[in-house]
Amino acid sequence: MSIVVNLNNVLSERNLKSKELAEMIGITEANLSILKSGKAKAIRFSTLEAICKALDCQPADILAYKKE
């Protein structure tokens, strides 16, 4: 998939663990793992909003387009 999820980078910059983020945004660790691994087919605006709010960042900090 040409959309890359850079959640790991943002998490390490904020010194946050996946478990903590999952709790903050109200999704399971398993779903967060699917999102981080790039296996997710889509992301809801509500999830994206919750992540941006929790990490104090912009959607572009998390998602990027990479030409294949």
């Binding site: 999704i27 999102l35 889509a42 809801r44």
Partner: peptide, 8 residues
């Protein structure tokens, strides 16, 4: 269904 399950 699979796509829906993989919508986070």
């Amino acid at each position: 269904q699979s796509e829906n399950d993989l919508t986070i």
